[in-house]
Structure formats: structure tokens, C-alpha cells
Design a binder for these strands. Structure first.
Lengths: 211, 211
DNA sequence: ATTCAATAAGTGATTAAGTCACTTGATGTG
DNA sequence: CACATCAAGTGACTTAATCACTTATTGAAT
């Protein structure tokens, strides 16, 4: 129904009672269906207000909200994965980038200085914008999903361990490489950037957790 | 509760009625909670039998089951993404592989000839096993998730367009490179392998959809 | 002794009608 | 014009059932 009506994030759904009538079931049954959609962030409930379409409608990859962090491994595992995956994405961006992508990239590089927005507006996150510049939506979504893994830790890291000026400088260098259409440089700079973050965290956590 | 009890995939949960008592809510409310868990494949219902823990408990990345394929892009987008992401994963596997990984890899390379199992037992899928050999669980999960995107199409492709003998030969060469601990070769062979599949599909679909 | 159909208990699926909690915009007052 | 009040609409949840399905047990026929 959301698709047929062409609803976009922010739009309101009909009320549970209306939906129940329309689909000829009772409200508890409708709620079960809606709860499933809620779990994958397709919709969101706002008590007393209504049910609204959320960002998940356009997101194919997502992080399982029901897997607790205690069940998953260290933050370093995540950064290791990013070190493997993101450099080639940066290279693809350098090979494919359009004018619009470059603009969005520059914008997000500046926004990196105020990380509080990045959590709500993923498109402003530098690494997401970088993946977006590859022109492949799925790559962008993959990076976006990875950044949601252990999101709490990642925010913590950005706020505490990261040298923001250095981060910004790194980002600008990557943007330059992408603008120049230099895939190798983009990949190398991205790798170095992530390795630096990884090392900073590894030393902070102490050598015993560094694998 | 699943975590606290240490339940694993296949284990049964208490009945809705029991859960309702235990959490001091009524069954419709319990059902809403369970539906959320169902949406991310943490549990699965079997009418008349019970509710069982499913594979999603250990899966951090997953494909949104509520985003229809019509809303997403072409299969080629997916293969392009895999061509970017999987070669470096193969390289990481060549750098890190353990004896166990190599054994699992060889096993899955043989199983590639009977693709029907791959859909139910992801660990037997060659590309998943390859990512697993990197030693990084998150990389494995990422590849696993990508293979779930447009799963129907991918099965179709494996069954119709793929030259199984050639596939198998490609896989064996990749295994060799990983065994030799040669990251560059592993990456190149993986890229070539995926590009070959991409090209086969692109020509089948016709040039008009090849971007 | 074995096989197999009937059965009963347990489980998920859904209904029905209602109450409570919260949000929001309209209303009216100071 | 600012601000408290109110009412309608919405999600959240309850209660007490019934229906549909699975499964292990039972018991009769082979």
C-alpha cells in the first residue's frame, strides 16, 4: 500500500482503525503487520500522533536492531572491515564521480566538523557521501549500514578519540583525489585515514584488545 | 530473554501464552514484540508447532525484507557493487587464512556445483566462505547480506546464465591463490570471475539495460 | 509385533469490543 | 495577542474468547 500510494519518508499512514477496515482485519492484526515494518525502519510510530513512513523504505541493507552489542565483537573488527571495504569504494568514486557528487562530498567534508548532525542525516556523513559518489546506490547503502553497526561506539569514538582537524584534513585530501579522478590515490588516502583511526582506538583500548 | 537463556537457532521459545504471563502483558502485545523479531529473522513462527529461534540472532547485517525489488535497481547494480567489494575481501582472505578456512573454502568450491543447497546453507556458498576466510566476521556478514539482495534474481542467474564448469574452475583458482597467501592474485582472480558473470548477464539482458 | 488412522492437547492466528495514554489543533478567555 | 483549556483523533493495551494447525499418543486393524 505504501508503494502503491507512492509514500515517502515523513508521510503519514492511515490510522490503525482505518487500515483495519480497509484490509478487513482487526486492529491487533494490523498492528502486527505494522510492527514488522517498524522493525526494519519502514515506518515509525508516534504515540497519539500517527504512523509515519521512515527512511527504511528506500534502504535495502540494514543493521539488525535486535542483535545486542554484547553478542557482537570488538569495535576493531568493524574498523578492520571498513579498512578492507572502503578504499576500493573510494577508488570507484574517483573513477565515476559526477559534478553533483563532488558538491555533496565537499559539503559533507565541512559538516564533519559538527558530527552531531551526522547521526540523523546519513547523507551528510563523509564516508557515506564518498560511497555515494561511486554512482552505485548499493555501495552507498552498504557503507551506510556499516556505519550503523555499533553506532553507539562510533559516536563515542568520533566525540572522544578523533582529532577533528586531522580528520577534516584527511577528508579534504580524499576529496581532492576524487576530484582529480585518481582512484589509486583515493584508495590509499582512505585506507590511511581509516588505519589512523583504528590505531588511535587500538592504543586507547590497550594492547590486550588489539587482537 | 533469548540472550539470557543462551538460545541458539532451532531452539524453541516458550508459547505466546506463557510469555504473556511471564512479561505480564496479554498475548496480542507479546505477538507485536515477536513480530518485530520475526521481521529481522531472529525468530520464526510455525503455526501449531511453536516459535523458534532463527539465524538472524547472530546476523548483524540483513536485507530489508520489506523493500520490493521493483523499488530497487537492476541486477547489474548489484554485480557492480560486488566487483568493487569482494576482490579486496579475497585479498584479505589470502593474507589471513587459517587451515580451517581453507578446508571450508575447498568444501564450498565443490558444493558450488550443486547450487540448490547454497540458498539454505549460506556457509556453503563459495563467496561467503571466501569472505569468512578473512577472519573478520563482519566481512563475511556483509557478503552474506549482499548475496541476499535480489536473491530471486541471483538464483535465476546461477541456474540459467552461469557456466558451472567455468565457475568451478574460477573458484579453484581463487582457492589456490588464497592457499598460496597471494592477496593480489586472489583479488584479481575474484574480480575477473565476477566481471565474467556480469558480462554474461549484461549481454543476455541486452545492451539497453547495460547502463 | 507392526502399521496406521483417530484423537486430544498444545500452539499460533485472529477476533471483538472496549479502555487508557498521548498529541494536536481549535476554542475561548485574560 | 498570549496562553490555558478542551475535544477529537491517534497509538497502546486489555480481556476473553474462537479458529486453525501440529504433534505425540492412543488404540484398533493388519
Amino acid at each position: 500500500m505504501i508503494e502503491a500510494a507512492g509514500l515517502e519518508p515523513g508521510d503519514a499512514l492511515a490510522s490503525s482503525r482505518e487500515l483495519a477496515k480497509r484490509f478487513e482485519v482487526t486492529t491487533p492484526t494490523i498492528r502486527e503487520a505494522l510492527r514488522r515494518l517498524e522493525a526494519t525502519d519502514v515506518i515509525r510510530f508516534r504515540h497519539g500522533s500517527g504512523t509515519y513512513v521512515s527512511g527504511g523504505v528506500n534502504r535495502r541493507l540494514l543493521v539488525n536492531p535486535h542483535v545486542s552489542e554484547s553478542r557482537s565483537e570488538s569495535v576493531l573488527e568493524l574498523l578492520d572491515a571498513r579498512i578492507v571495504l572502503e578504499p576500493p569504494v573510494a577508488a570507484a568514486a574517483a573513477a565515476q564521480r559526477s559534478e553533483d557528487d563532488l558538491q555533496a562530498l565537499t559539503l559533507s567534508a565541512d559538516n564533519a566538523l559538527k558530527p552531531q548532525y551526522a547521526d540523523e542525516r546519513p547523507e551528510l556523513h563523509f564516508h557515506v557521501a564518498l560511497a555515494g559518489a561511486s554512482g552505485n546506490l548499493l555501495l552507498r547503502e552498504t557503507v551506510e549500514a556499516l556505519l550503523q553497526v555499533r553506532a553507539r561506539d562510533q559516536i563515542e569514538i568520533r566525540h572522544r578519540y578523533t582529532d577533528r582537524d586531522r580528520d577534516h584534513a584527511d577528508h579534504l585530501r580524499i576529496v581532492e583525489a576524487v576530484r582529480d579522478g585518481d582512484p589509486d590515490a583515493a584508495a590509499t588516502l582512505t585506507r590511511d585515514h581509516l588505519v589512523a583511526i583504528r590505531d588511535a582506538i587500538a592504543t586507547t583500548l590497550g594492547p590486550e584488545q588489539a587482537r
